[in-house]
Simulated assay, not measured.
Amino acid sequence: MTIRNELMAYCPYNEQEKKDKELMLRYIDQFSDVLKRENEFAHFTASAWIVNKERTKVLMAFHNQYQSWAWMGGHADGNADLLHVALKETEEETGLKNIKPIMSDYYSIEILGVDGHMKKGKYVGTHVHLNVTFLIEADEGEGTTIAPDENSAIEWMSLDEAIERSSEPYMKQVYTKLNEKLRNVQD
Rank of each mutant, 00 (worst) to 15 (best):
Arg4Leu: 05
Asn131Phe: 02
Ser47Ile: 09
Gly116Phe: 03
Val114Tyr: 06
Pro148Arg: 00
Gln173Cys: 10
Tyr175Gln: 01
Ala42Tyr: 09
Lys100Ile: 06
Val58Pro: 00
Leu135Val: 03
Thr2Lys: 07
Ile50Tyr: 09
Asp33Val: 06
Phe62His: 12
Gln173Thr: 15
Gln67Pro: 10
Ala61Tyr: 02
Gly113Thr: 15
Asp105His: 10
Leu87Asp: 06
Gln67Trp: 10
Ala42Asn: 06
Asp29Gln: 11
Leu83Asp: 01
Ile163Pro: 02
Thr2His: 00
Ala147Phe: 11
Tyr66Lys: 11
Met24Gly: 01
Val128Met: 11
Asn98Glu: 11
Met171Gln: 13
Thr2Pro: 10
Leu25Phe: 11
Gly125Glu: 10
His75Tyr: 13
Ile154Thr: 02
Glu180Thr: 14
Ala42Gln: 05
Asp33Cys: 01
Asp187Cys: 06
Glu40His: 09
Leu112Thr: 12
Lys21Ser: 03
Tyr170Val: 15
Lys181His: 11
Phe31Asp: 11
Glu110Lys: 09
Asp139Lys: 05
Cys11Arg: 14
Lys177Ser: 13
Lys57Phe: 12
Trp71Lys: 04
Glu92Phe: 06
His129Asn: 15
Gly125Ser: 08
Glu92Asn: 07
Glu40Gln: 15
Glu137His: 12
Trp69Leu: 05
His43Cys: 02
Glu22Gln: 14
Asp81Glu: 05
Glu142Ile: 02
Leu87Lys: 02
Asp139Asn: 14
Thr94Lys: 00
Asn64Tyr: 14
Ser167Thr: 12
Lys119Thr: 08
Ala80Lys: 12
Arg4Gly: 07
Ser32Val: 14
Ile50Asp: 11
Lys36His: 12
Glu6Ala: 09
Ile109Trp: 00
Leu7Ser: 03
Leu159Trp: 07
Thr145Cys: 12
Gly116Leu: 02
Met8Ile: 15
Trp156Ser: 01
Gly143Phe: 05
Lys97Ser: 08
Val34Leu: 02
Pro101Met: 01
Lys181Glu: 14
Leu35Cys: 08
Lys19His: 12
Ala80Trp: 10
Thr176Asp: 11
Asp115His: 08
Asn131Gly: 13
Glu22Cys: 12
